[in-house]
Design a protein around this nucleic acid. Structure first.
Length: 475
RNA sequence: GGCGACGUGGCCAAGUGGUAAGGCAGUGGACUGCAAAUCCACCAUUCACCAGUUCGACUCUGGUCGUCGCCUCCA
């Protein structure tokens, strides 16, 4: 039974969907005004594993992740410049060109990391009518007020505000930098609609004049549009708990009178070399740059070696360790081959069954991927012992199937090239046979030249027992 | 100032009221033409520190020190 830590209740809870077997999963997506960084990687890999595990458990999941292409400001919620508009100015492009460019960049990076595409990636700019409609309802129910061309949510009308984040005080204490807009009744009130003049490139007509939606509104509108008034799981980064998710809860619940999300899941943040990764610190690590040095699967394994609710520090030493671990998995998977099914030995069946049970037990416990990986690495050791004996094709097939089901299927760690026919794998197999032939005939000079040439070309050679050699591409 | 998380071997990282998974690195051995891979063995009497609860705590409570995050754009 899967249990998940719910930020709202501050404890692990058994997960049961509202309407089994269907699950509605909403995760706050990126604001597309720049390339994705390590923080995005940790967050979206974490939720990708949640998605994959839910599907492994046979839930029918609809995964919605928004693309924010309007509405977030460079400063606080109520002043500053639209981030896309600012970037558009810097790159001398249209805001929508910026959105397209960085949406593509985001998907490219996430594809490399092995994240499954969301079922729906709704754009905020494409759901302005839904957002306006939501504001109208909030007006009707007395939760919104207008000040000039601006519309605000009246937090005093929603007593539960602050429940998720634990910020239940009436006001912000001194020491915080709250630069409230002058026309708000209360500093905690937040914008539902912002007035915008002609200098604002992204703006729409509304009952309150030309403007654009508040930065929390899109998630409420789009989540409810595609997943209904109550969604099963709402996820995002820990930094979104306040104010973003707090505001989402307020406006959604106030509008529908129903619970907005049943499970709130938040992943922790990343640091780089022990320090917060921030624009102002200049240590932003963009994925597109990182992938030139480390294989995306190394990054993915790195992320999954720690728990999603733990903060994660990235360092070169850590990447190197993750790379070695990945090589161990790849090497084992490679040896299992892609043969046909057969009848496996009972001992292999037992091993597979035990491994899967341990894996599931760990994943059931709030997605404990470090422990799940431990089960897989133990399996690799035992599997290598099996391979050292006289395994049947059925033995190999059974073990390969397990690895593909758990490591690749659930954790998303790709261990095979995936291509079929005329593939690199075939070429490697032939070259391995060649080296084996040379060694058997004690043509060591030629055998070593082949090994050296392959090394220069980015391939590793491993000599197995029985005069067999294998060739694998480096990562 | 407010809220919260965390301090486990050289590095990373799980975990349990009854005595420490796994990965990386390292050491010794087997195997090997050599190297690598693989396998075997070794590698924290100890889980920041100090009290307390308990038959017993690393795991519970209180305190101290330290690190980090959020409260502002950020996943």
């Amino acid at each position: 039974m899967l249990s998940l830590y719910n930020t709202m209740t501050r404890q692990k809870q058994e997960f049961t969907p509202l309407a089994p077997p269907f699950v509605g999963l909403y995760v706050c997506g990126p604001t597309v005004y720049g390339d994705s960084h390590l923080g995005h990687a940790k967050s979206y890999v974490s939720f990708d594993v949640l998605l994959r595990y839910l599907r492994y458990l046979d839930y029918k999941v609809r995964y919605v992740q928004n693309i924010t292409d309007v509405g977030h400001l460079t400063d606080d919620a109520d002043s500053g410049e639209d981030k896309l508009q600012k970037q558009a100015r810097l790159e001398k492009l249209e805001p929508m060109e910026i959105a397209e460019k960085y949406t593509a960049s985001y998907f490219r990076d996430m594809d490399h990391l092995g994240n499954l595409r969301p079922d729906i990636s709704p754009r905020a700019s494409g759901h302005i009518p839904e957002q306006i409609e939501l504001i109208k309802i909030l007006f009707e129910k007395g939760h919104a007020y207008q000040a000039g061309g601006n519309v605000y949510f009246d937090v005093s009308s929603f007593p539960d505000y602050g429940k998720l984040s634990g910020r239940i005080g009436d006001d912000q204490k001194s020491g915080t930098r709250v630069c409230s807009a002058d026309d708000k009744r209360n500093p905690r009130d937040f914008a539902l609609w912002k007035d915008a003049g002609e200098d604002h490139l992204l703006r729409w007509d509304s009952p309150w004049g030309w403007g654009y939606p508040g930065w929390h509104l899109e998630c409420s509108a789009m989540a409810m549009r595609y997943l209904g008034e109550t969604i099963d799981i709402h996820g995002g980064g820990l930094d979104n708990v306040f104010p973003h998710h707090e505001c989402e809860i307020a406006q959604s619940t106030a509008a529908t009178g129903r619970e907005f999300a049943r499970y709130w899941i938040h992943n922790n943040m990343v640091t780089v070399d022990g320090r917060k990764m921030g624009k102002s610190l200049g240590n932003f690590t963009f994925l597109r740059d990182l992938f030139e040095q480390w294989d995306p699967m190394v990054v993915r394994l790195y992320i999954l070696r720690s728990h999603y609710r733990s903060p994660l520090d990235f360092s070169d030493e850590g990447f190197a360790g993750a790379k070695s671990g990945l090589e161990r998995l790849l090497s084992f998977r490679s040896r299992l081959g892609s043969r046909e099914a057969g009848v496996p030995a009972q001992a292999v069946l037992d091993l597979v069954e035990k491994t899967e049970a341990e894996f599931r037990k760990s994943m059931d416990d709030d997605l404990n991927t470090p422990e799940a990986l431990a089960a897989l690495f133990k399996f690799v050791r035992d599997g290598n012992i099996v391979l050292g004996g006289q395994p049947s094709e059925g033995d190999k097939y059974e073990m390969a199937a397990l690895l593909d089901r758990l490591a690749t299927g659930v954790l998303g760690i790709e261990l095979t090239s995936g291509s079929s026919g005329g593939s690199l794998e075939d070429l490697c197999r032939i070259l391995g046979e060649l080296r084996g032939y040379l060694r058997k005939n004690k043509l060591f000079t030629e055998a070593d030249k082949l090994r050296n040439d392959l090394a220069d070309a980015g391939f590793s050679v491993h000599d197995l027992s029985g005069g067999v050699s294998e060739v694998t591409p480096d990562i």
